[in-house]
Design a binder for these strands. Structure first.
Length: 727
DNA sequence: AAATGTGGAATTTTT
DNA sequence: TTCCACATTT
């Protein structure tokens, strides 16, 4: 078939797109046209009449990926994408639960809690049950709850082999009861509840199994145990499951992603008639050859992988550059210099990214960039819908939609301050606990005396007035009205520095308006219509899509982000900074199961972001937690073929540390009469291997040095006896 | 109810 | 060091 749909696909892509009915695992390397294959596959299924829009379900992890898929699909096919189930796991589950809320055992207007809301609820549960938060850290329970649910377990299914865990599981059960009472669900609950909905209702399950003849899964390597079971439940032997993923880019094990799902896929989704097809996409359309060579060489050091080598028909390109800096500030200065000269060469700063392993590393870089007057943008941090003022406004809206939401009630009952104090709330909470009702219902049912009681009554009246005033209003006007009548606008106007918050509240009104306007284009599960209630849909949207971290800069800006945040992106030039043992691979990963392999995949992701130029940098000393740390070069640098790397500095630069450690005088003193030895120096030991001197004491023949060995840890050695070699 | 102080922790993060 | 949560103060 020579339809324009299929033109310009390479042989493997074409094979994947046109696979006959049956399940398939597409091993799609970085930059191999994964999204193109996924969207073209859907378009091809529709064009050839093998599927109609309503029989396709495509699932992604992020809203961004879902939007991109929708956009590209609309460009490929004239079919209206509105009827299609394309969205995130959470978005699709939300859609399912809104449609079948009765069978799912949920109130019609159940609210979705984000992680903040969830933590707040846990703390409230603790307070109500007199649980000591010092002995049982709320965050720990939160982790247990989410991990358990993502494994598919309810409290009665969690294995508890010690007293502490048994108590935690009791707390988990209390939390579940609170969720039920308040009509709220957390993120993993969306998945677990819809899993239970389908597994517990055969007719529903059969309905959806018959309906979705094609399941397509993006970033399959990121699926967790429950998502995998969810897919298996939705698939019957006639369902074609098209899973696209890359085991080498699995970097989310810490949040439950399970690469083993890729290994099990062939076994679990094969049918007697059709074994699972496996197709590898290895041709890369992003990077020049040297960059791919480096990526391939690095990832080959991993044991557990399905195996794959990227190649390009494009040029070998520039060599990969590496640089050793004496300190983190020198490293930043180097990056600034290169960025400047590349800008002079005409590369847009927006096409360059500085990547790092952990957010803390951005500070030094930002400082250097700021002083050099280079525009930059840092990814990460507070998202739009997570801002306090936005959450306050949303809490008022939630009370309009679902007054039993105690979390929303408590957030705004006295914000802006209206004289409802702690005493009143204590009494109200006791009352609610005693009667087993929500705070809202309790407050309505009770007459509280005195001034405080009057304030509370005022609040109730205010909410009722809002509800009456906004009934029938378009969503945007509802939000506008709530922002004004809640007193939030006035409160922030009066507050010094509240201007930004006012702007964010205005932005919330805009967001509501565009949400309604673009309802047609909304990702499945968020659109109005199925729930029949725009406000409720908007609240779900706010919870499921936290929004951008930061408004885009006006002028093109250098991109700063963690390697995790860079996944899926590409840049003309990439600086991968902080390539040091302890940082990257991170020291914590050394003790984790398969931790270093995951770190290596992370480095692989970083390298494969670069299209044309790649700089790998390492600082010999770095300020961390208020202390100077000396680190040896990352093992990942050594795992790259030397011939591929162009060193821009003497590889083992014998440069004195740029910054004296605070209490360093004595330590330098210790080595004063031992020329050739100094703190921060790279050394080699016959047995312990490579390391770096981080401390010293004693004089002359008594001199001892403390060495941080790459593989053997930190040791004190006598200079006189340990046969240390400068390295 | 805001302002100030203290102690502890400090990979990675989407929904 | 720096940030945060939480407690105490004013």
């Amino acid at each position: 078939m020579s339809s324009p749909l299929l033109s310009n696909l390479n042989a493997e892509q074409l094979a994947a797109v046109t696979l006959p009915h049956g399940s398939a695992l597409i091993l799609a390397g970085a930059g191999s046209g994964k999204t193109r294959v996924l969207t073209t596959r859907i378009a091809w299924l529709l064009a050839t009449g093998q599927a109609n829009p309503s029989s396709v379900l495509a699932v992604t992890f992020t809203n961004k990926a879902a939007r991109e898929m929708l956009a590209r699909l609309s460009a490929l096919t004239p079919v209206n994408t509105r009827g299609m189930w394309i969205g995130t796991f959470h978005g699709l589950c939300n859609r399912l639960l809104r449609t079948h809320y009765r069978d799912a055992g949920l109130p019609q207007l159940f609210q979705i809690m984000d992680m903040q809301d969830q933590l707040a609820l846990i703390k409230r549960v603790y307070k109500a049950s007199n649980i000591d938060a010092d002995r049982f850290p709320p965050r720990q329970l939160q982790a247990l709850i989410n991990d358990s649910k993502e494994e598919g377990s309810r409290p009665n299914q969690v294995e508890a082999n010690d007293e502490f865990t048994r108590r935690q599981v009791e707390h988990f059960a209390l939390y579940e009861e609170a969720c039920r009472r308040e009509g709220v669900v957390d993120f993993p609950e969306l998945l677990l509840r819809s899993f239970e909905l389908l597994s517990g209702h055969e007719s529903l399950r059969e309905h959806y199994r018959r309906r979705f003849s094609h399941l397509l899964v993006d970033e399959f390597q990121d699926t967790n145990a429950l998502q995998y079971r969810w897919l298996r439940l939705l698939a019957d032997p006639h369902t074609a499951v098209f899973a696209v993923g890359d085991d080498d880019q699995s970097i989310y094990a810490f949040r439950g992603a399970n690469i083993a799902n890729m290994q099990h896929f062939e076994r679990d989704f094969a049918t007697p008639e059709a074994p699972v097809k496996l197709i590898k996409l290895e041709q890369n359309y992003r990077s020049h050859g040297h960059i791919l060579d480096a990526a391939n060489a690095l990832i080959r050091h991993n044991q557990s992988r399905l195996g794959k080598d990227l190649w390009t028909a494009d040029a070998q390109g520039e060599p990969v550059r590496a640089f050793v800096a004496p300190s983190d500030t020198h490293e930043a200065a180097f990056i600034v210099d290169v960025v400047k000269s590349l800008i002079d060469e005409g590369v847009s700063p927006a096409e360059m990214a500085v990547l790092y392993r952990s957010n803390a590393q951005s500070r030094v870089l930002e400082h250097a960039l700021f002083n050099a007057a280079i525009a930059y943008r840092v990814y990460g941090g507070m998202r739009f819908f997570e801002r306090a003022e936005v959450k306050h406004a949303l809490a008022y809206l939630r009370l309009l939609a679902a007054p039993d939401d105690d979390g929303a009630f408590l957030r705004v009952v006295n914000f802006p301050p209206r004289g409802v104090g702690a005493r009143t709330l204590e009494a109200l909470q006791d009352q609610a606990r005693a009667t087993g009702t929500s705070l809202w219902q309790s407050a309505c049912a009770t007459r509280f005396g005195g001034k405080a009681g009057g304030s509370l009554a005022g609040f109730l009246a205010q909410i009722e007035a809002m509800r009456a005033a906004t009934a029938g209003l378009p969503l945007g006007e509802t939000v506008e009205h709530v922002v004004q009548s809640s007193g939030l606008a006035a409160h922030y106007t009066a507050e010094k520095g509240g201007q930004e918050r006012i702007e964010n509240l205005q932005e919330l009104v805009n967001a509501a308006e565009s949400f309604v306007r673009e309802a047609d284009l909304q990702v499945a599960g968020e659109a109005e219509g199925e729930t029949g209630d725009a406000l409720s849909a908007f609240l779900a949207h706010a919870a499921l899509e936290a929004g951008e971290t930061q408004a885009a800069e006006g002028r093109p800006a250098l991109q700063l982000m963690t390697v995790h945040a860079a996944k899926g992106l590409e840049f003309h030039t990439v600086f991968l900074s902080g390539l040091e043992e302890g940082l990257f691979p991170h020291e914590n990963s050394l003790s984790e199961h398969d931790g270093v392999e995951e770190e290596r995949r992370l480095a692989y992701v970083a390298i494969t972001r670069a299209k044309r130029r790649l700089y790998l940098t390492h600082a010999q000393s770095r300020m961390l937690h208020g202390q100077v740390r000396y680190n040896v070069a990352s093992r990942f640098l050594d795992e790259l073929p030397r011939a591929l790397i162009q060193w821009l500095s003497p590889q083992r630069a014998d440069v004195p540390p740029a910054r004296e450690p605070a209490s360093g005088a004595a330590r330098y003193d210790a080595l004063r009469d031992r020329p050739g030895w100094r703190i921060g120096q790279s050394v080699k030991h016959a047995k312990f291997g490579l390391g770096i001197i981080i401390d010293a004491e004693g004089r002359g023949t008594d001199a001892r040095v403390q060495v941080n060995f790459r593989n053997a840890g930190v040791k004190w050695l006598a200079l006189e006896y340990a046969k240390l070699q400068p390295a």
